[in-house]
């Protein structure tokens, strides 16, 4: 720890003294520390922040480190605490930005933490969050909380199922390893396993509209699904999970294109049609809808 402080102080003095130097490289040890923080952060939430580029996190950490050093006042405390606060915050914000967008990024961590705390205290259900309580606790407006939770939910839901579970763990131990290192084999095997029957039998996608079609186009409906006590709940979590595996396919843009085409050409009265089998499935224990006849217009499965 003392080494770290000495290193940072040395770096600080150098950077203050070297105003005439145009380019100044961060010492590799500091860079490594930032990289470790970035990998640790991503690894901790590997599915949630899977689309976040690790280099973006490192870069934001480096920028935060440089900015923080300019503002550091030795009389106010230890440099290590000061810098790590800034680096952690920058990495966190950069990661959240990819999940909830620029505007909501500064509030996302607070909302997420409040949600977690309330769940632990039993004040909020993980699947049906209490928006009012979260808003109150995080001091973020209810609209923003809704937006953030919807974005988080969508991101968490569209997990890439084919990803190697160990890959990100491996990164955290091998700083600087190129992401191209990911093995392809397991993915292609899984792909083949899932798709071979399609190739041999030459099956084409059904042209009927079903639930996943409109959730592909309106992903925010996923948030709507979580309203436990409202009467317009659409799909229960088991069906949602099946839909999410569809979302994670690499052909997602193709699926969405097809869904858009189908929805736009379907008659209005048939849009909300969901598979009849869904109503009878033993898994679908909580499917509630006010006007059930609307669900019975389409066959197939999610």
């Amino acid at each position: 720890m003392l080494d770290f402080c000495a290193l940072i102080l040395g770096f600080l003095i150098l950077s203050k003294m070297s105003e005439n130097i145009e380019r100044f490289d961060i010492p590799p040890e500091v860079l490594e520390l930032i990289e470790r923080r970035a990998y640790a952060f991503k690894s901790k939430n590997r599915y949630f922040f899977r689309d976040v580029d690790i280099q973006d996190l490192v870069q934001s950490g480096v920028i935060a480190c440089l900015k923080a050093m300019e503002r550091f006042d030795p009389s106010r405390g230890k440099i290590q605490t000061f810098l790590m606060q800034h680096i952690n915050r920058a990495i966190q914000q950069e990661a959240w930005r990819a999940v909830v967008g620029d505007g909501n990024a500064p509030y996302a961590a607070s909302v997420s933490k409040s949600k977690q705390d309330l769940e632990e205290a039993g004040d909020s259900d993980p699947d049906f969050p209490n928006i009012e309580r979260i808003s109150e606790k995080s001091k973020v407006s209810q609209i923003r909380v809704k937006q953030i939770l919807a974005a988080m939910d969508f991101k968490r839901s569209s997990v890439v199922l084919q990803d190697d579970k160990d890959s990100i763990d491996r990164y955290s131990s091998l700083i600087g390893v190129n992401e191209d290192f990911i093995e392809q084999e397991s993915k292609t095997e899984k792909f083949k396993k899932n798709n071979t029957s399609k190739y041999f039998e030459g099956e084409k996608d059904e042209t009927r509209v079903c639930g996943e079609d409109y959730i592909l186009v309106f992903p925010n409906l996923l948030f709507l699904l979580k309203k436990k006590n409202s009467e317009y709940k659409i799909v229960i979590s088991t069906q949602k999970y099946n839909f999410l595996s569809k979302l994670s396919e690499s052909d997602f843009p193709y699926s969405k294109r097809s869904a858009l085409r189908k929805l736009s050409s379907t008659k209005t009265g048939e849009l909300l049609a969901l598979p009849e089998s869904l109503l009878e499935s033993p898994e679908s224990d909580t499917l509630v809808y006010k006007n059930r006849k609307n669900w019975k217009k389409c066959e197939g499965s999610l």
């Binding site: 409109y214 186009v217 309106f218 858009l260 085409r261 929805l263 736009s264 379907t266 209005t268 009265g269 849009l271 909300l272 609307n294």
Partner: peptide, 12 residues
């Protein structure tokens, strides 16, 4: 196309 979907779903 997306707007047509939206309008239809809203109406429904």
């Amino acid at each position: 196309r997306a707007l047509i979907c939206k309008a239809k779903l809203e109406k429904q």
